[in-house]
Design a protein around this nucleic acid. Sequence first.
DNA 1: TAATACTCTTGACATCTGTCAAGACGAATG
DNA 2: CATTCGTCTTGACAGATGTCAAGAGTATTA
Lengths: 198, 198
Amino acid sequence: MPDQLVAKFRELGPVSAEMEAKIREEAFTEEYKAGKIILHQGEVCRKICLVTKGLTRSYYINDGKEVTSRFMGEGFIVTSWISYYTQKPTAEIIETLEDTTLICLHEPVIQKMYQDFPASNIIGREQVEYAFFLSEKRTQLLRGLTAGERFSTFADENPTLLTRVSMKHIASYLGMTEETLSRVRSKMYRPKNGIANS
Amino acid sequence: MPDQLVAKFRELGPVSAEMEAKIREEAFTEEYKAGKIILHQGEVCRKICLVTKGLTRSYYINDGKEVTSRFMGEGFIVTSWISYYTQKPTAEIIETLEDTTLICLHEPVIQKMYQDFPASNIIGREQVEYAFFLSEKRTQLLRGLTAGERFSTFADENPTLLTRVSMKHIASYLGMTEETLSRVRSKMYRPKNGIANS
DNA sequence: TAATACTCTTGACATCTGTCAAGACGAATG
DNA sequence: CATTCGTCTTGACAGATGTCAAGAGTATTA
């Protein structure tokens, strides 16, 4: 089972035999049915998990409304980066959208690995850089674009998610209401002008 | 001069004597007058700089309009993270808003340090985590809040920037037009209701 | 000093998006 | 099968924000 976690790390940086042994020793699997909450509001995020099967999303509550911050499918790391980084209670909630399997490491274990195997910091750095890169890209997506432009960009870049995620969640990810998304989509899949009328 | 860069790194993680020597050997200073562009659109970001004096902002052009992504003052690292990470041409432009002094390291030097001094990855990771943390916070600020709420949050958290940065740039940072920001501010610094009229 | 450029403000109006309400449709459940 | 629930759509309307235009005030420069 920890094979995939080791493989994921190997993509990012060198993994020594010792380190691999440590990972295999410490990694543990978690399984969730769809619709379960992995990280509750107010909890401190004390682990980092790799999604091996399924799909999750993270979101926070703003003014009573859910704001989706990320979708994390197979091969992605699931964690609330802010809470993990600060080790403070999270505002970000993480839930499963499908039946999901995770392979996880506890935070103290990771800290210990950073100390015992300095090269593991390469992996940590690469991973954070990648997550940051995704976050910046999304921020740029959300800014200065109209609702329609945001959706079509998202659809182009995430064709798979379109069928796996409900419109409600995509809308909240894209910073618009469900109704606006619905209108945007119906406009998009329809002729641009009235020529087709006659 | 590289003292401040070494000190900055020491805040984030251990710096060995060897590593310090390398930093002192490789670091170089750059000075810019206010209003100069440090990183042009389409350039690849090949260095990382610490602001020791002055103020910079990064922005990109969207649909002809500038969208400010960050302000970086004294003690902050200046770089286009996406371009630096991908080593591809940047969409993000970086300019100085005041006369600015930077201490910089070239990208290949940093890569070499990551290899030669594995512990330096701790510093890299911490730095990226922090930048990521700021980026996430800003994203949350921009989402689900009205123009007025965005400004008052920004004003609370960045009192200094209010006087150092023009309203035009703050508006584009907060995702609104200059006119909207102006109206928001005039409403804010005025009695909330009509009671004061009589 | 006059001329110019720049920043910020204000007004009028258009447009986008959110809100509230209702309904169609399909999936899940008893 | 009937019912219920959740998802998505559609309409009417209101409010927030953008756009265009103009003007006041200040700093900069010749």
